[in-house]
Design a protein around this nucleic acid. Structure first.
Lengths: 312, 312
DNA sequence: GGTTTCCATCATGGAACATGATCGTTGGGT
DNA sequence: ACCCAACGATCATGTTCCATGATGGAAACC
């Protein structure tokens, strides 16, 4: 391959293109990047000279700059390169911080209660040199954003995966159960109640939680509109409210306390699709041995959990 | 995100890292890239200053330079970025050449005979503005290399796909048939002959062809060693040799001339896995509307072909 | 037609870079 | 033990490239 003009290409060129595409103006792009308008103008001129094609359409006057066909195509590559560069930066930062023996993992409440303790116990025993840093959040999307930024190496996640530069592994399927007051007539049925029977009762649920959205989506698809009388972010609160007779609750099995005598737990036997819990990581980032080991441990622990789902 | 020292990163830095990793020496890397050793040394120093980590282990003396852990990780990102950059370059070159209405497609003989004519006819009729440039090669790997370099937009390919930055779509499954002389006793059997019965006869086959390798692999897996008495690159030659009684042939159905009275064609009815023909393209490159249309036409034509496989 | 909002262009000062020479280090050959 | 070859780091230097600030020209809005 010839040593052509492409070696003169600079990252600033690509960042400038992206900034202009976002802002629609050389001047605003310059402000955002901390350059002068003249500098941006020259950078783009240089970039166009390198690729040999006009990348931006300057209509003149106060009208916004638009991308040409070539500009759009190049911009997609530029964004991919920038993303890869950010991944590299995150990897270097992790290495600089001495992360060879550290895994930063994102969790959320319903996974924290049952999976994490056993997983950490086994992982610590089998990998004593690895430090695990947990970050718990109410908002799964925030966890994913942290993975994207490189602030986390892994995060638990309710599958399926949304689009993005991610890879995932499925850990376990967690079926939904119906939690009712211990003296509820629903608890004495021979068969699991139908969705219709369930939605006739007032419901207690969670806030802003992907598992709950999953339930609501399925109810809506079945033509049922749930009647929520209370929402909380805390599993114990939800279960306490059910025990107190405020309502009933559709909860993932892993989130319920099966030893609570004030409630009865009813297997829905497939009336609702189970939620699928997995681990997600950034596809472009370096997969450290410590992270790999953590994923393997998680898979092992969860397959144990799945085989003995209702251990007292 | 802060405007940190990473904006000073230059592609030459990454290319230098890659060159050193390949060559094991600053000096040879400098030669390859057309710089002086001093320049390379300073580039690496600058790169290490940017990332804040030592990337190369210099043992001193004539021993080769090796990558550190950080260097290895960064190198993988650098290679991904370089690959993406090459894809961008290919896209720009294609655009510069006025490829908006052009598709460059790689083919090989066995696909050229039956699929291509009907496909081109239909495609030309439905997309009159698009020019199709065909490149035929005996060697499928060469076609794939051309896709990788950006010399082709699409290529036919015998699936499964090997590793690499490719995407593919399956077009059709082409079963193998046994081609025997018209007066062969094999042609009078009630059932298709077994692999054992086949390999007792001398075989005529193709040279360096993935479809043939596919057959040999399956025969080997079944513990049969084929006895090739002749190989040719030309379908007509192979079939002519069979007709002349030189041997029998295992050929994909699409490659045989069913009107040849000197041979009989025997359906193997699943004794061999069919070869799968698909279209492959570069995952990172821009997918032009013309290329997309070509893929769609190919899928349509091939599904017609699959439904009427033995049209006289 | 004046005004505003753009981008392109120009000359200039400064930073970054490649060069060529030199030095320190290491390992192998004699 | 010695010398030599191979190698990377460093230094001073000349050049190239880039960002700056000011100016000019084009298009739309009032």
């Amino acid at each position: 391959m010839e040593h052509d003009r492409w070696v003169g290409l600079d990252l600033r060129h690509l960042l400038a293109l992206k900034a202009i595409a976002d802002e629609g103006s050389f001047g605003r792009a310059a402000d955002r990047l901390g350059y002068t308008q003249s500098a941006i103008s020259q950078q783009i001129a240089s970039l166009e000279r390198i690729v040999g094609l006009r990348l931006l359409e300057r209509p003149g006057g106060p009208r916004p700059v638009t991308l040409t066909e070539a500009g759009r195509i190049l911009l997609r590559h530029a964004e991919a390169i920038e993303a890869r560069l950010l991944a590299a930066k995150a990897d270097m930062a992790a290495l600089e911080a001495g992360d060879a023996g550290r895994v930063r993992v994102g969790t959320f409440q319903s996974v924290g209660a049952k999976i994490i303790p056993e997983l950490l116990r086994q992982f610590a025993a089998s990998h004593p040199g690895v430090e695990v840093v947990l970050t718990e959040s109410q908002d799964e999307d925030e966890l994913l954003a942290m993975v994207e930024r490189g602030d986390l190496d892994l995060t638990f996640w309710t599958l399926p995966l949304v689009g993005g530069p991610y890879e995932a592994v499925e850990l376990l399927r967690d079926p939904y159960v119906l939690v009712v007051p211990a003296d509820s007539p629903l608890a004495r049925l021979e068969r699991p109640p139908t969705l219709r029977e369930i939605t006739l009762h007032p419901l207690v649920g969670f806030n802003q939680c992907r598992a709950m959205a999953h339930v609501d989506r399925q109810l809506a698809a079945a033509g049922r509109t749930p009647n929520y009388v209370f929402r909380s972010d805390n599993n114990g609160t939800v279960q306490g409210l059910v025990g107190a007779g405020v309502g009933i609750s559709l909860s993932p099995r892993l989130t319920v306390d099966e030893d609570d005598p004030s409630v009865a737990i009813i297997d829905l036997q497939g009336r609702l699709e189970p939620r699928v819990i997995g681990l997600v990581w950034h596809a472009d980032r370096h997969f450290s041995p410590a992270a790999r080991a953590f994923v393997e441990s998680a898979v092992a622990v969860c397959s144990e959990l799945a085989e003995a789902p209702a251990a007292a």
